[in-house]
Design a binder for these strands. Structure first.
Length: 278
DNA sequence: CCTTGAACCTGCGGGC
DNA sequence: TGCCCGCAGGTTCAAG
């Protein structure tokens, strides 16, 4: 479920519930996801949560002893917070109980997620983060920056913009959406984009992510993303998942174009509409 | 350094 | 009804 907007939405939900709460129970229903659970994960029991942050697609739960609980949702992870009595569901792998009785449940059918524990609050040097590019909303993420990074990249721009070492947060859905919004053919070699196109791409990435965050945020209630889906934003996808249908946001004639195209790049689906690009 | 492809894992829907 | 296939929002690793 998660690209940056979904993770951001989950973080916002957690931020309304977790800070200043003490963790009074840690239940591990298995010992690993993509990587083993920390051997000392149980030691977060008795600790109080200070703040919630996000870096790339990682959720950071800072603790009052200076350590950080790191959670990544992978492809299918969900974090829900419920005050109701916990009823175990399939694929609930980690359940934290808070001192107000609330339960934080990490459910992840495909188990591509991860849970880790860092010794510090500052994670810049942590192995998960050293290789990551800037946040898309960081002022470092500019057309000039992308030009430099794309210079040596012959890969398709769709793949390049999803490369987390260049810029973080853009996953398979928003890559298609941002490129459509910028009217850039996803098949083009990254290094072939001119400054004007790069500028449009930077703007499009920021706008798409921001809009999706707003839509996701609007669907929050008692849960941190109750259904684990994309909130309201999926109804606004212009091209993603719309093969053969009319794209949203350009005035192409579907009779003429055949609608949105789907191709495979890097083993994953890309959706695009080429009107106004040729 | 760059690129590609496979691997990790479960669930769902479509076709036969 | 069952079986097989392809597909799903991420990341890492090996090999060329």
């Amino acid at each position: 479920m998660p690209e940056l907007p979904e993770v951001e939405t989950v973080c916002k939900g957690l931020a309304r519930v977790l800070p200043n709460r003490k963790i009074v129970g840690v239940r591990q229903n298995r010992h690993d996801l993509r990587i083993p659970f920390p051997a000392d994960l149980g030691s977060i029991k008795g600790r109080k949560v200070t703040t919630i942050k996000r870096r790339a697609k990682y959720i950071l739960v800072h603790l009052d002893d200076g350590r950080t609980l790191i959670i990544h949702l992978g492809m299918s992870g969900q974090l829900t917070v419920s005050k109701k009595k916990y009823a175990a569901e399939k694929h609930d792998h980690l359940v934290l109980t808070l001192d107000n009785g609330a339960q934080v449940v990490f459910n992840d059918p495909r188990r591509f997620g991860l849970v880790a524990l860092a010794k510090t609050k500052d994670l810049a040097q942590h192995k998960f983060f050293t290789h990551l590019g800037p946040e898309p909303f960081d002022k470092k993420f500019t057309a000039a920056f992308l030009a430099e990074k794309f210079k040596s990249k012959k890969v398709a721009v769709k793949l390049a913009i999803m490369d987390q070492t260049l810029v973080v947060g853009v996953g398979n859905i928003y890559a298609s959406e941002a490129l459509f919004s910028a009217r850039i053919d996803p098949r083009r070699a990254a290094q072939s984009l001119k400054p004007e196109a790069l500028k449009k791409l930077v703007t499009a990435v920021r706008n798409i992510l921001k809009t999706a965050i707003r839509a996701g945020g609007s669907s929050l209630r008692d849960y941190v993303h109750a259904d684990g889906s994309l909130g309201d934003f999926q109804q606004h996808f212009a091209v993603y998942g719309r093969e053969g249908q009319k794209c949203r946001g350009c005035s192409c004639n579907i009779q003429k174009t055949g609608g949105v195209k789907r191709i495979t790049q890097g083993g994953r689906s890309t959706f695009y509409c080429l009107l106004k690009q040729e």
